[in-house]
Design a protein around this nucleic acid. Sequence first.
DNA 1: CGCCAGGCCTGCACGC
DNA 2: TGCGTGCAGGCCTGGC
Length: 315
Amino acid sequence: MPELPEVETTRRGLAAHLEGATVTGVVIRNARLRWPIPENLPELLSGQAVISLKRRAKYLLLDCGRGTLILHLGMSGSLRILPLATPPVPAGSQGSSPKNIVAPSASCFERGGMPGVSPQLRCDPPAIHDHFDLLLDNGKLMRLRDPRRFGAVLWHEGDVHAHPLLARLGPEPLEDYPGKNSFDARYLYQATRGRNVAIKALIMNNHIVVGVGNIYACEALFSAGISPLLKAGKLSLARCDKLVTAIRTTLSAAILAGGSTLRDFVNASGNPGYFQQQHWVYARAGEPCRCCGAPIRQIKQGQRSSFYCENCQKG
DNA sequence: CGCCAGGCCTGCACGC
DNA sequence: TGCGTGCAGGCCTGGC
């Protein structure tokens, strides 16, 4: 699900609730995501103050000073802020309680009197796919839901950008790096030279540019008037410029609309995005092109569906 | 039942 | 032999 606009929408919704708060506990209901959630996360995170929530590509980076919590939403993940039903007891006033550290098997059902769960951990009952909670001292919690479990929750100490998952990523499409490797026409032109791969696959390659998934690859190629089948090496500098602009404007417009919700994406407040109403081609197979009226075509490229208008997009 | 779905890492085969 | 490259597979669940 989440491509860059959905992840950025999530980040913006979460940041104010997380930054400045202190982690009081962690609940792991199912550690089996794409990689296992580290078992010792409760010990690592409890008592840590959240400094910032940033984004790199489709990863959310929760800087806790001592280390960084790396979050990825995979295909079906979403993160929400929820209130704890009962405000947490202020630190130090609770004598015997051990810092709200919760074992993975613990849950926070409101009903049912689940044994071993202290009152301050009660909240909305988690659903079947709510795998992970971060409990905060401001009376809120951040909850990860991920039915398909392609997402990730990882911990990294030291420079997070040196993490193996981040170290080799290409430039951010919406940022400029003065002097080097900004995602501009010249960069894309260089990156496409000698490449036989279809342009659609190339712009979805994280080593070239990050954040462009299947939806926005299709939409940006339509916007630039470029066929998804065109071999990357054939792109002229002028068309690279068009494509860079199309990627930037498409992603920016999607962020403004709160992302695309096809089935289950919700932002930090639990609300859907609306950019799918502005899709020109994605998931519109057989429907008339909003530009020329020709039917939108759907083809397969490397196991993924591509949607495009044969008339408006040239090879 | 089979097929499809927003991501992305890994491993393989291939050609220079 | 050693690469860069381009595929295919795999991880999962839910919905049509």
